[in-house]
């Protein structure tokens, strides 16, 4: 694995690179990320930043209305807030899948502009406790014109409840809350503008 040394003329906005591409992106959150607690406390985290990695599938399929679509998988999430001490990581026990769908009908060449959505399952570390979400934290970006989505603002739908891992018999692998009461909730209206820090070349097994 080596740091990408692609020629400068390479156009990252080229839709043809989407299938099978992998990117690591440095993210800076520029919106409101709020944590709500049961006692009424609200914690604003506006200095969250960190790294994320996403891989897109090799296979482009077509939606019923004829638009190209490709599955994307979030491989890594690692954000932190220096001010609040919040650490956000991906829950390794669950797949963090998403989908990029072209707005116009056609083949892979029409993958951009596109709408992107991710279902994220996270582990929040805060004040010595670990919290996971059972419902996905859904992140969306509309009409992106480049991929990786450099400079794109992602929005999350509503809010998502998190549970203290200590209250879940199955730990981070638990799929239903059972009798557990949510420990906090995360709501975010606008989340991240992203900028690409580097490509990492990951050759496929078949060369």
């Amino acid at each position: 694995m080596s740091v990408d040394a692609r020629p400068a003329r390479f156009d990252r906005a080229d839709p043809l690179i989407i299938p099978g591409s992998t990117h690591h992106v440095g993210l800076a959150i520029r919106g409101e990320l709020k944590l709500f607690f049961a006692d009424g406390e609200t914690l604003d985290c506006d200095d969250v930043q960190g790294m994320s990695a996403v891989r897109s599938s090799d296979t482009v399929t077509t939606t019923p209305d004829g638009r190209p679509t490709v599955e994307v998988t979030r491989l890594m999430t690692h954000f932190h807030s220096n001010v609040t001490g919040l650490l956000i990581q991906q829950n390794p026990s669950r797949l963090n899948l998403g989908r990029l769908t072209g707005i116009a009908p056609g083949g892979p060449e029409r993958l951009l502009p596109a709408d992107v959505t991710f279902d994220q399952y996270l582990i929040l570390a805060l004040r010595g406790r670990l919290h996971i979400n059972i419902d996905p934290l859904v992140m969306e970006a509309k009409e992106i014109t480049v991929f990786p989505p450099i400079g794109t603002t992602f929005l999350s739908q509503g809010a998502t409840l998190f549970y203290d891992v200590a209250d879940l018999p199955g730990g981070i692998a638990q799929r239903e809350p059972g009798n557990a009461t949510p420990s906090l909730a995360l709501a975010s209206q606008s989340v991240c503008g992203s900028h690409l820090t580097h490509y990492i070349d990951m050759p496929s097994a078949d060369g």
Binding site: F36, A38, G158, P177, P182, S183, L184, A185
Partner: peptide, 19 residues
């Protein structure tokens, strides 16, 4: 209407006995 409700909805769900 809904965003104003959200903090209260979330706290309501986080009260002991909530689901």
């Amino acid at each position: 209407f809904q965003m104003e409700a959200l903090p209260f909805v979330l706290r309501g769900l986080m009260r002991p006995g909530g689901a």
